[in-house]
């Protein structure tokens, strides 16, 4: 564990908590893509199957459980409890366009052709693009509430910090995993446009509004 990895995990945790609190406090999930949230639930379910096979550390188990439970809780709040506030007219990205290619790619490019390893790889590929429905929703409506922007910033920072963690581990521990690194790069790049808007607008107190 190094500082980048820890900050990455904490940033991820913060993103999840911010999103759940936003939905809970405002009793609304307007502006949030349910498609992205379903994809994240699929991502963490397929990645953390090792919870039942291997024990790594209390930290590892605790965080995995939080990520899985929070993903399902978010989906529950969006599709059941606060269904009436869900922006489904704008949330039109087709999930199969991301799930199917990720699955095919995981079957083709993986470290080992075993069920757990392919599912892990699939989750890494899918995670890298799972935010697309959310970014698509923001671009369709042309704006995002500040709290949604904070959520996206924390979520985007998480994989960016993991990239630094991988650079560190490469030099310090001679450890690297190309699948995770390439997917992590893709994931972070997808946020670049958003990061730019966040820094130039939201941090200056303005609403995140896309140019018309």
């Amino acid at each position: 564990m190094n500082i980048f990895r820890l900050l990455g995990d904490l940033s991820h945790l913060l993103a999840i908590i911010v999103l759940l609190l936003k939905i809970w406090k405002t009793r609304s999930c307007a502006g949030i893509s349910g498609k992205s949230q379903i994809l994240f639930a699929i991502v963490y379910t397929s990645r953390y199957l090792d919870l039942v096979t291997t024990y790594i550390s209390a930290y590892n188990t605790f965080m995995k459980l939080i990520f899985v439970v929070a993903a399902y809780a978010t989906v529950y709040l969006m599709y059941i409890k606060f269904k009436a506030t869900y922006d489904h007219n704008h949330d039109t990205f087709r999930m199969e366009f991301l799930v199917i290619p990720s699955l095919i790619l995981a079957l083709l490019i993986n470290h080992e052709l075993t069920v757990l390893e392919v599912l892990w790889t699939f989750s890494i590929y899918l995670e890298s693009v799972a935010i697309l429905p959310q970014l698509f929703l923001v671009s369709k409506t042309g704006e995002a509430e500040s709290i949604t922007s904070h959520y996206l910033f924390a979520l985007g920072s998480y994989r960016g910090l993991y990239l630094l963690n991988w650079v560190y581990r490469y030099y310090a521990e001679d450890h690297y995993d190309l699948i995770a690194i390439v997917a992590g790069l893709v994931q972070t790049v997808l946020y670049c446009d958003f990061f730019y808007l966040y820094i130039t607008k939201v941090l200056k107190g303005k609403k995140l509004q896309l140019p018309a």
Partner: peptide
């Protein structure tokens, strides 16, 4: 190398 069963990263 880490395998699916001993990946410590989240």
């Amino acid at each position: 190398r880490e395998t699916a069963n001993n990946k410590d990263e989240l």
